[in-house]
Computed example of a mutant assay.
Amino acid sequence: MASDNFMQIHDPELLARGERVLGAEFKAMHERVLQVSALTSRLNAVPFDDEAAKASLLVEILGRPLPAGLTIYPPFYTDHGLNLDLAERVFINQGCTFLDYAGIRLGRGVMVGPKATFITMGHPVDPEERRRFLTGAPIDVADNVWIGAGAMILPGVSIGRDAVIAAGAVVADDVPASSLVSGSKATVRRSW
């Protein structure tokens, strides 16, 4: 059972302001990850046409009834599940990963291509701090967004209504409504 402090740290708004997850909070998070990993393993082994079994496991993973018109094609991966807020008519293709501890919201009619990844948590860059705590920020995807195959959405990103994220794009900054973003560019930012 989570402590009150865990619930405060767990709040996506606090994480967005740079709060850290550590100690007892990390232990509670780790326990949920183990539980959800077992559930997603079962989900990913269910025959594709067994809709009732898939729906039952998704309800356990998400901790709430499924929205109308939700489609998720396994394999499907999440590390927490309870902070994955899916609206009506969301479509998630095969092999997608949702690391949702800090919160992920997908608006109505969002389409997610195969192998897309959403990451809300990370480690500090400083090597002395890297193993001591986690930081994170929520991801918010507005209605009618299309996220292409293999796209990666990073912590704290908001994607505006009707936007398109091209296949393979790495999205580290907010995306305006009704726009197309593409590409990835790894550049040296600093050295130590």
Rank of each mutant, 00 (worst) to 15 (best):
S179H: 10
G122H: 07
H30G: 01
I92D: 05
P75M: 04
V125I: 14
A55K: 12
R161V: 01
C96K: 05
D50H: 13
A102W: 03
D174S: 07
A116N: 05
V188R: 15
E31M: 09
P176Y: 03
G103P: 08
T187N: 03
I61G: 10
P75T: 02
R108G: 00
G122K: 04
V171E: 04
L57K: 06
R17H: 08
A167L: 02
G113C: 02
A28M: 04
G160Y: 05
Y101A: 06
M7D: 07
I72Q: 10
T40D: 09
R32G: 06
R189G: 14
T120W: 11
L57F: 11
E60T: 09
L34P: 00
A24G: 04
S179K: 01
M29Y: 13
K27V: 15
A167H: 00
D140V: 12
N83E: 14
Q94I: 02
A169I: 08
P65N: 10
P114M: 03
L84F: 09
I9A: 01
I61N: 05
I153G: 03
D143I: 03
A172C: 03
E129V: 01
P138D: 13
M7Q: 09
P47Y: 13
L66P: 09
N144L: 03
A38D: 15
L57T: 09
F48P: 06
G160W: 07
S184F: 14
I61D: 05
H30W: 09
A163D: 04
A16D: 05
F118E: 07
E25R: 00
W192Q: 06
A169N: 09
E51C: 07
R20T: 11
R131S: 11
K27C: 01
D79G: 04
P155C: 04
D4T: 05
L34M: 11
G136V: 03
N93Q: 08
A177T: 00
V188E: 13
V112L: 02
L134I: 02
D49K: 00
R17C: 01
F118Q: 12
L84A: 07
S41Q: 14
R64G: 06
D143A: 12
A151N: 13
S184G: 12
M121I: 15
S184M: 13
F48G: 07
E129L: 14
R132C: 02
K185W: 06
L134T: 00
G109V: 04
Q94E: 07
E31L: 14
A16G: 11
N5C: 02
L70M: 12
M29R: 12
F76P: 03
V36D: 08
V145P: 04
Y101F: 15
